[in-house]
């Protein structure tokens, strides 16, 4: 007579490999996540450059101005026309001054759309200069590098 093994209720699979993999996946996504979306905007398609290297150290007193292809500036969550940016920059300068810093110490990061007009970018720079900002960083997206032979 055959002896029937009593089946246990609940099939016991080996969970260890699955949990290993799941933790690995979590670790992978956790490492790659970045929460810096506050300073980026989907509307702006940055120009490409093979030399655009991320800065080694975070900039001191960064101030991000985003310039759309329609010639408006996205700043602090608002969309303002280029000629109306002055009061905002003045406010930033006053904030810096209240922190005992000069506007010249701050770096203005310009994230301009690739098809924005250069003249408008220059107008933004000029508006910043009027508020004594001196350092500018033009932001570009990293592109696949092309080798140039060093011979010539």
């Amino acid at each position: 007579m055959k002896i029937l093994r009593r089946k246990r209720d609940g099939v016991e699979g080996d969970m260890t490999p699955m949990i290993d993999m799941t933790f690995q996946l979590i670790a992978f996504f956790m490492v790659l996540i970045n929460f810096t979306e506050a300073e980026t905007n989907e509307r702006i398609r940055l120009p490409l450059s093979e030399l655009a290297k991320p800065p080694d150290a975070p900039l001191d007193q960064p101030l991000t101005l985003q310039l759309t292809d329609e010639g408006t500036v996205l700043f602090a969550g608002e969309e303002v026309p280029v000629d109306g940016i002055g009061p905002y920059l003045l406010r930033e300068r006053q904030v810096l001054e209240s922190l005992n810093k000069k506007a010249a110490d701050a770096t203005v990061i310009i994230r301009a759309d690739r098809s924005a007009k250069t003249g408008i970018v220059q107008e933004v720079i000029q508006a910043c200069q009027d508020q004594q900002f001196e350092k500018f960083a033009l932001r570009a997206k990293q592109e696949e590098a092309q080798e140039i032979p060093s011979g010539d």
Partner: peptide, 18 residues
């Protein structure tokens, strides 16, 4: 983490002093 994952190309700066 999968839902918030977005592949972003790195961005870099060109410094100009005016």
């Amino acid at each position: 983490f999968i839902m918030t994952f977005k592949i972003v190309q790195l961005e870099g700066d060109f410094n100009i002093k005016m």
